[in-house]
Computed example of a mutant assay.
Amino acid sequence: MTATVLRPTLPALMVEENVRAALLEDLGRAGDITTYATIAPDLKATAAMNSREDGIVAGIELARTAFRLVDPTVTFEALADDGDKVGPGTPVARVAGTARSVLSAERVALNFLMHLSGIASYTARFAGEIAHTSTRVCCTRKTLPGLRALEKYAVRIGGGSSHRYGLDDAVLIKDNHIAVCGGVAKAIEAARAYVGHLVKVEVEVDSLEQMREALHASPDVILLDNMGADLLRQAVAINRAHSGLAADEYAGDRRRVQLEASGNVNFSTVRAIAESGVDFISTSKITMAAPTLDIGLDIVVG
């Protein structure tokens, strides 16, 4: 029986902390002097936040929080939920309140909403390319400083998965670790001896020879770095033979060593990489190269 996958959530405290910091950065030392100078304090405004292109929404609560922190009397009506598909002209939210408050919160609300929706939309494109396989696309630690939890949340909204969140929640032995430590197996054994039993150990290899060495040291995951589809298929075959599993048992067995592919992942290569039979594809592109989703705030006249 397939387990129900619950929608990811962001803790309210985390949302408020990030939005508050962004507002303080934007308002500076004197507040929104343009709005204060041109808009009378008693004027009211209603505005619609509309998508201007196709995509996936992410970041509704951050937008809501921006308006609330500037002025608790501003009303924010979400017209789309995180994970919803939108197109040109689709209303995402409607806000109403004093014009000063609406305009002062506008940019921070849109910045979060456009950035996170862009990541969710870009992730969804990658996930769609490999939906016919059991492979999952994952983001990495290559995120904007201070926004990692938010960006990884957006990846999950878009149908992707998260790699480790930081240096402290999983071991990833990379080529430089191996070079300094003195070998693949030695590094894996040292990591196993150091961390607790709940911490996963992954090792990066760049050749099938290194992969064979790694398999004998029994890591949880082997990262196959910058290997083409042919080499990846060979790696999957080696892993299957090492596991002793039949072909029809291999894909669904999570007790065996898992294989992750990374490097040269783009829309023209991701399908062949997934079809090689690897379990995961990690790429920084879904966080570092994702364009924003064009969402605008339009004052409703009349």
Rank of each mutant, 00 (worst) to 15 (best):
Glu16Phe: 12
Glu260His: 09
Ile238Ala: 06
Thr2Tyr: 12
Val70Ser: 01
Gln210Arg: 05
Gly128Tyr: 12
His216Lys: 13
Val15Arg: 01
Ser268His: 14
Val171Gly: 01
Leu167Ile: 14
Leu293Phe: 08
Ile56Lys: 01
Thr35Gln: 05
Ala247His: 07
Arg164Met: 02
Asp82Thr: 09
Thr292Val: 15
Ala109Leu: 04
Ser268Arg: 12
Thr35Arg: 13
Leu232Glu: 06
Val300Tyr: 01
Leu27Arg: 04
Ile222Val: 15
Ala229Gln: 03
Leu231Phe: 08
Ile281Thr: 01
Ser161Pro: 00
Arg256Gln: 10
Glu77Lys: 10
Ala37Lys: 11
Ile178Asn: 00
Ala48His: 11
Ala12Met: 02
His163Pro: 07
Thr98Ile: 03
Thr123Arg: 05
Leu23Asp: 11
Ile157Ser: 03
Ile295Cys: 05
Thr143Gln: 11
Thr35Trp: 10
Pro145Gln: 10
His163Glu: 03
Ser243His: 04
Glu249Val: 03
Lys152Gln: 15
Ala217Asp: 12
Lys200Arg: 14
Val301Ile: 12
Ile60Cys: 08
Ser276Trp: 07
Ala78Ile: 10
Asp253Ile: 07
Lys200His: 07
Ile119Tyr: 04
Leu79Val: 05
Pro41Ile: 12
Gly228Lys: 02
Ala187Glu: 02
Tyr165Ile: 08
Leu172Trp: 02
Ala66Phe: 07
Met288Tyr: 01
Asn239Met: 00
Ala247Phe: 02
